[in-house]
Design a protein around this nucleic acid. Structure first.
Lengths: 135, 135, 135, 135
DNA sequence: GTGGTCTAGACCACC
DNA sequence: GTGGTCTAGACCACG
């Protein structure tokens, strides 16, 4: 499970993790029973404090998304949200897409340029890891 | 200048304002000498405490982005950063673009679909308002 | 409201505060509507971090003992526990009394000496402040 | 040596054990050379994890209070602190006594009642077990 | 090794 | 001025 946090965005780090785990669960990248990285491993990978990672997991547990077993780790809950329908998944991404467009608009980045940038970044990611997402 | 804050995002409200003003200035939507809404008006429009609006402006002034003239309001500074070069503006948007891609990946939205969604939303925005963004 | 924390006991500081507020509420020393010291004032008085004091109050609020009003302070709730009957109040103190006796036993302090010590300390406290407790 | 832990008190379990052993040693209830229960036995008796019991003993050993002889168990050290003078022993109990008094004060238990309660509980304990405490 | 708790410092939003 | 949140470090209990 690839995670990524942005320290400059102002969004609390623990929330960024929560959102990504939820998205992965909703999308099916994480399936019921799958183990999440340990609090320590996640903290090290993202260069954050253990507590911040722990808090993200605590939040996810309190929302019923994951289950934590003392001494063995955190796992995606069986009764977690089942993978969403395609239309629903799209809706989830639209709010962020709109915010991005507004930002680009403020920066006077043209529609054409924005599309190019997206294509560039997608290519960049796909070259980095063998993704299981279909093309 | 149209502004918008998201209370659920976790991003400090005052920071959201700062970011939007900076983006508008960097992109050229706001030009040197242009007036910003008064603290009072902004607070009312966004339904926030006047202190919070004032704080955003104080931050912008301390960074030299705007100047406040007693009794007449806040204005974009003449010596503020001139509109950025195209390449620099692009860089500004890339971090957000990457986060979006990760999110889409977790939701198992294909690259092709993501591109389509972007095109859709761009069309949506352009049909809504007479944008001054170049094509 | 006189408060006192013991840093060496191992009992979490925030819990010691919670217990004392509850006891004061149960005993009637604090009455519904009474204001508690502000988080900052309490922290300074006890030489603890503001967060530790805040946590105690947060716990008390979550248990419905106090009510906190943004910007004005914390107050004992009207529907808080009504003053306990004499017998019940006594019960509250017995667990601690027993722990004390066991400790004294381990230290081989005689019953007589323990009683003397209690009398001494009571006299000490009564000389320090004009207590409203009946003798 | 009878031990007792309170899981709700917030005091670390290992510390409660350490405190009780030290008190017993300081008071003379445990004498140099006396054997302590094995880690295994203690863990079982108190229903705690063996690691926790082991940790308490490790702490005691590192402080020079006890010594562990491979295969035979843990014993109170000969060079451990000899039983304290009466005055010192009294000091040890005073902090707890003060906390008790504050608590009683908040519960509006009168000095007289507090003294009676102490006498009651002392009588209760003495009737329960043949104590070796001097009268 | 695992997750959980307590204390702390810096910052935020509101009166 | 008020209380609340986020991040962090150190420590605890358990497998």
């Amino acid at each position: 499970m690839r995670m990524l946090v942005n320290f400059k965005s102002g969004v609390p780090v623990y929330l960024q993790i929560v959102q990504q785990v939820k998205a992965a669960a909703a999308g099916g990248t994480l399936r019921p029973g799958d183990a999440l990285p340990s609090v320590r491993a996640l903290a090290e990978e993202l260069r954050i404090n253990r507590n911040t990672a722990a808090r993200a997991y605590a939040e996810l547990e309190s929302e019923g998304v994951i289950e934590t077993r003392q001494g063995s780790g955190c796992f995606l809950k069986a009764n977690g949200a089942s993978p969403l329908r395609r239309a629903v998944r799209s809706e989830r991404i639209i709010a962020e897409l709109d915010a991005l467009i507004v930002q680009a608009h403020h920066l006077q980045i043209s529609d054409t340029d924005l599309k190019s940038l997206l294509a560039d970044r997608l290519a960049h990611f796909r070259s980095q890891l063998p993704v299981e997402t279909s093309a």
